[in-house]
């Protein structure tokens, strides 16, 4: 069995404390936004989740390329772990965004570039999981999965662009203030601090989760090999 890590439990506790601290900051430190009311507070974790999702898919892309270059199964485990964590956090982003949109946009859903792209991304990576499930040979599974990660990742910006040619109503809080967007607001220093801290906390959480998932993948491979050895 893969050896237990001594750093990982420490990271678990750090992540837990950080998440609690960030939650506390969101509710008790950041001021309430005047136009939108309390619902604006989901913004901090909404964007942080989206960040983790993108981080996951980015890591998966790098791992996919690395796998094709080296054929080292380690990269395949990292890729799968990153995709899975990415899917979970992108799902959180989509659902929470939809809950925010109801009072602000007066609808649960709209086919805006960001929303649509996020949905298509979930579908790409759901297809990725189905591809893996359909192939038994581990080496071939890893190879195909890496190829599909690369293709899927390339299609995402093109999907975004294709829908961007229409007008968008999604707010861009960081960077430019597009006046046509609904639900934009100016961040006060306290809001900015809370936001930055949430991003940091979720990044730490990402490392912790992906680490756990990689260990799980490694254990699954060990069990698989053991089964194979016994069946011979």
């Amino acid at each position: 069995m893969p050896a237990k890590s001594r750093v990982l439990p420490v990271l678990d506790w750090i992540s837990l404390v950080l998440v609690l601290a960030a939650t506390g900051m969101v509710f008790f430190y950041a001021p309430t936004e005047e136009v939108m009311g309390l619902v604006q507070k989901v913004f901090y974790f909404h964007v942080a989740s989206a960040w983790v999702g993108m981080l996951g898919f980015g890591v998966a892309l790098v791992a996919g390329i690395a796998y094709l270059r080296t054929a080292n199964p380690k990269w395949d485990q990292i890729e799968l772990a990153a995709v899975e964590v990415g899917i979970v956090y992108l799902l959180i982003t989509i659902i929470v965004g939809s809950i925010w949109a109801k009072p602000i946009w007066n609808t649960w859903w709209t086919w805006d570039p960001r929303l649509t792209t996020a949905t298509v991304m979930e579908l790409v990576y759901a297809a990725y999981l189905m591809l893996r499930a359909g192939i038994e040979d581990t080496e071939r599974r890893a190879r195909f999965a890496a190829v599909y990660t690369i293709l899927g990742f390339i299609s995402v910006p093109l999907t975004f662009l294709s829908i961007r040619i229409f007008r968008t109503i999604h707010p861009v809080v960081i960077g430019s203030g597009d006046p046509t967007a609904t639900g934009t607001f100016a961040m006060t220093p306290k809001m900015l601090q809370t936001f930055m801290f949430s991003l940091f906390v979720f990044s730490v959480l990402f490392v912790d989760l992906i680490w756990h998932r990689i260990r799980l993948g490694r254990l699954a491979d060990t069990v698989e090999q053991l089964k194979l050895r016994l069946s011979q």
Partner: peptide, 25 residues
């Protein structure tokens, strides 16, 4: 939606949505 908010100048009560959001997260 924005205009209505501006006219009232009062912060709307959207706490239910916030709670739902954090429950989901």
């Amino acid at each position: 939606v924005n205009t209505v908010f501006l006219l009232n100048q009062a912060t709307p009560d959207t706490s239910g949505y916030m709670i739902a959001g954090y429950i989901v997260i």
